[in-house]
Nucleic acid binder design. Structure first.
Lengths: 240, 240
DNA sequence: TTATCGTCCACCGTTAACAGTAGACGAAAG
DNA sequence: CTTTCGTCTACTGTTAACGGTGGACGATAA
């Protein structure tokens, strides 16, 4: 069983990383932008130390790149979203497969409670609450799997995924089917057959991926990706 | 094609991270050890900034944990080695599967050149050189796959894997079969069938994993894991 | 015009000092 | 004896200043 660290007040570095991450994902700060410690420190009225911390964190999440003179924004292209979800699929399928043997009754109950929260959020059309419950649900899947390295990778990229999900919450979509998808994942874990479970989760994540590439594409202002005629288009209505 | 960053002199933080990482993997610094910025700064005659950088890096590699008062060494248990290799297997199989379509002639040639270096190192029984070539070979597999997130995860954990490999280089083993295993991976990429390629790579990594758990076990002083009668025992003679 | 060389500067890496905080711990009260 | 409260301290987070470095750039020579 993987234990959780107690919550502490976020440092300035963490706060700044969060602000910059959102700005990068939303392209308020565009790809190629030169980020300089001193400049950001002046702009946000902090010293360079927390700026360093923030930029290091964003670097390890693949959002910025350190070069000789400063950091440069890489941002998130459609390619990046695809890559990120391919990574996520690779590791999350392993985690849920392990969950078949390892998930405890308490964890399964916690999963069902989160699904209930999702349904309640869907009732209220509270997409932001839904997204947060969604993230907690998937984190629980990793916890059930009991592989700490998989958990660590999830934790590393979770903030990026969360930022991406924020791009999709403004859309007026019925969230109930997605909530039920999550319940179905739990059912399949309990049923104990890895093959349909893997198929279901892959479909689930591919739907989420399509939705996000759609949102990023719309944000970029592209018309280059037309999803309305592909099988993913239906799945794209599903969250996470 | 994934581009490489130019090489810079390592900062004090990076150097310290490397030293501490080795000490942790080798259990010179044992699990549970309390690591304090001030104490390490005095011991290594640097200021606290680089110590912070080092500990942050080790934290993201899962070797230490930050709690309220300082960092604590988690270390690498047998469980951790298994988890790490399960992660690696999950992502590396995806990378090589993608390499079937995406590997360039130049990359394949580079792979063969690295295998030649491995054979030369095996000729000289130069295990450390072999291990380094081994790491470069696998990094090239990720590059061939062209998924930047997979590359990033590999880069994140590569130093830990390298430290682990150092535990195994003192053993007097004929390295030629392992070199040829790598050539075979390239052949299978060129042959273009994902299924035998996946099977081969999984076997390859499971061999490496067994070898490492064997080395960690011996280092811990355990007698709790007897590998001599399992199918992995033969594969454990293979590196990487 | 091109190549070379010296200077400058745009940054980051590092250091030392200060400030804040959350438990630990001891003393006092019930 | 147990609980509460106040103080202390062990750390980290942050700030400001200094030092180093590697290209950029301008001047000079061929």
């Amino acid at each position: 069983m993987v234990t959780k660290k107690p919550t502490r007040a976020p440092s300035l570095g963490e706060q700044l990383a969060s602000v910059l991450r959102d700005q990068i994902v939303r392209r308020v700060i565009g790809p190629g932008t030169h980020l300089v410690e001193d400049t950001l420190a002046a702009e946000y009225d902090v010293s360079r130390g927390p700026v360093r911390d923030a930029l290091r964190q964003l670097e390890s999440q693949g959002l910025v790149e350190s070069r000789r003179r400063g950091f440069y924004v890489l941002g998130l292209t459609l390619r990046d979203v695809d890559d990120l979800y391919e990574l996520r699929e690779a590791i999350e399928v392993v985690a849920v497969t392990r969950a078949i043997e390892l998930a405890s009754p308490a964890q399964l109950a916690a999963g069902r409670a989160i699904v209930d929260e999702m349904i309640a959020a869907a009732d209220r059309s509270a997409a932001t609450d839904f997204a947060q419950a969604d993230l907690r649900f998937h984190e629980l899947l990793y916890d059930m799997g009991g592989n700490r390295k998989l958990v660590d990778v999830w934790q590393e990229y979770k903030p990026v995924i969360a930022s991406l999900m924020q791009l999709t919450v403004e859309e007026d979509v019925d969230l109930h089917p997605s909530a039920l998808d999550h319940a179905r994942l739990l059912d399949l874990i309990v049923a104990g057959d890895a093959t349909p479970l893997g198929v279901e989760l892959r479909g689930h994540l591919r739907g989420a991926r399509s939705r996000m590439t759609h949102a990023v594409d719309a944000m970029i202002g592209g018309g280059t990706t037309d999803l309305t005629s592909t099988p993913d288009a239906v799945a794209a209505e599903r969250v996470s």
